[in-house]
């Protein structure tokens, strides 16, 4: 097992070994995603209070969950990169940032579009909304550091430290609805007792969550392959590869 990890973590082997993974993740994301959307838009019952507008949940909530999940992956891999100098970890962190930023943006915008009919406002400085906005800025800050600093090692160190410091924001976002009395509703699924959502609505929601994860897995591997090519541009395996292209 350890041998496989060693081989997989060298950029050269990662570049080729990740291709089948990308294929399967893409197929999985597409199938589960389409089925989840079908259930969510056509089959799930109308909400007795919110009517049809609640159907935004099937993209708002998975995007929000993903923005937190991707940030944790980014911070963990940045930490691994700094502590053990595993270059693939830095590549995964750099590859995750734009994807996480796009999910945080999607969560904020779909939430705001859902908030307008339900709360009467596109934006309020609510604890949950504000901490999610800070999460988006942390992603953008990470990406800015990555592109601004010339030397790759110091760019990884600086952006990695920002990512690790920013981890404190993750529990704040999650518990913001309990700590402050927020306009945003409390946890519905991620809590210890039974989720307070009807099963016909829960199933498409969980399907979409799985589809988002598979989609992220496929895209982060594609981006990590680009990072591997760019960061190893002076190495023989990349030069040989490029000559064949």
């Amino acid at each position: 097992m350890w041998h496989w990890i060693q081989r997989f973590s060298s950029p050269k082997h990662f570049y080729t070994m990740s291709v089948p993974l990308i294929k399967w993740f893409t197929v999985g994301a597409l199938l589960i995603g389409l089925y989840g959307l079908y259930l969510g838009l056509f089959v799930a019952p109308t909400d007795y209070q919110q009517g049809e507008s609640y159907r935004i949940i099937f993209i708002h909530v998975p995007a929000a969950w993903m923005s937190l999940f991707v940030y944790m992956v980014m911070a963990a891999s940045a930490g691994i990169g700094i502590i053990w100098q595993i270059r693939l970890a830095d590549m995964v962190a750099a590859a995750s940032a734009p994807i996480g930023a796009s999910f945080a943006f999607l969560a904020l915008v779909t939430g705001s579009l859902w908030g307008k009919p339900m709360w009467g406002a596109y934006w309020v400085w609510d604890a949950r909304l504000t901490s999610e906005l800070i999460l988006l800025f942390l992603y953008l800050g990470y990406m800015a550091l990555q592109s601004a600093i010339e030397d790759q090692r110091s760019a990884d160190k600086a952006s990695g430290l920002l990512a690790i410091v920013g981890v404190v924001n993750i529990p704040i976002i999650h518990y913001s609805v309990e700590w402050w009395n927020t306009l945003h509703q409390g946890a519905t699924v991620t809590k210890f007792d039974k989720p307070s959502i009807h099963v016909d609505m829960l199933i498409p929601l969980l399907l979409m969550a799985v589809a988002f994860k598979l989609f992220y897995a496929a895209i982060v591997l594609i981006r990590a392959r680009n990072e591997a090519l760019y960061r190893d541009r002076n190495r023989r395996w990349v030069r040989e590869l490029i000559e064949q292209l």
């Binding site: 935004i56 999607l106 579009l113 859902w114 009919p117």
Partner: peptide, 9 residues
């Protein structure tokens, strides 16, 4: 609201 959200998605 719903279709703008899905469009952005």
């Amino acid at each position: 609201y719903v279709w703008t959200s899905y469009g952005l998605f």
